[in-house]
């Protein structure tokens, strides 16, 4: 499994995709922006490009000829996606801290960066992973439809959350008002988000293995 992970990191993921978190993360510096977009860029750009790379480089057959189980090859790909997602969130949250200090007096129409907001981001990526990984492993090479559907699902979640943040005074208070100082609430949301992210991704991983067993090269 370690060898497969190294193979993904060295061959599958181009250097550009390691730079992406720093580029998209910098968007956190736009005052009062729609920050869900920052991590969505991972879904818009990194995922389809990376998986297009797998397709054009015949990764499916390349990997299948190595002495590895199908299960491990799914595990390696899912791990890489998760690793990059964590990188995107980690870098963006650091830029987020800078952003809140740079512009202390901005009025936020959308959610400002806060532990709770990152919790919501985890949920958004959880939904993305569940849809993308499960759909992708139906063929293990077609990435277009899985990207469209999973990105749509993620946008619907983000849009819905922002809409609630505007419509509901409770949500607005929690993520934009006094709730920001309630660290217990903020970190509980973050932890819940991480838990949902983990659970959804693990479910996706198991369904993907089942589907991949049936895939023919």
């Amino acid at each position: 499994m370690y060898n497969l992970l190294m193979k993904e990191l060295k061959l599958g993921v181009g250097p550009f995709f390691y730079a992406m978190p720093f580029l998209t993360g910098a968007l956190m510096l736009i005052p009062g922006w729609l920050y869900f977009l920052v991590t969505l860029y991972f879904c818009f750009i990194t995922v389809p490009n990376m998986f297009a790379g797998y397709k054009t480089q015949n990764d499916l057959i390349f990997t299948s000829m190595l002495p590895v189980t199908k299960k491990d090859s799914v595990k390696a790909k899912v791990s890489v996606v998760v690793l990059l997602e964590l990188m995107h969130i980690a870098v963006a949250s650091i830029y987020g801290l800078i952003s809140t200090r740079l512009y202390p007096n901005v009025t936020y129409f959308f959610f400002p960066p806060s532990p709770g907001f990152w919790g919501l981001t985890f949920v958004m990526l959880a939904i993305f992973n569940l849809v993308f990984i499960v759909m992708y492993y139906k063929t293990a090479y077609k990435y277009g439809a899985p990207t469209i559907v999973s990105v749509t699902a993620a946008i619907l979640f983000a849009g819905g959350a922002e809409w609630l943040g505007i419509q509901s005074s409770f949500v607005s208070d929690l993520f934009k008002g006094a709730g920001l100082d309630n660290l217990a609430a903020q970190y509980s949301i973050l932890l819940a988000g991480i838990a949902i992210f983990a659970i959804f991704t693990i479910i996706a991983y198991y369904i993907a293995i089942k589907r991949f067993e049936k895939v023919e090269m």
């Binding site: 060898n3 190294m6 193979k7 060295k10 061959l11 190595l66 002495p67 590895v68």
Partner: peptide, 9 residues
Amino acid sequence: TLTKVIKPF
């Protein structure tokens, strides 16, 4: 590069 990736398997 390719050999380095393949040989540990």
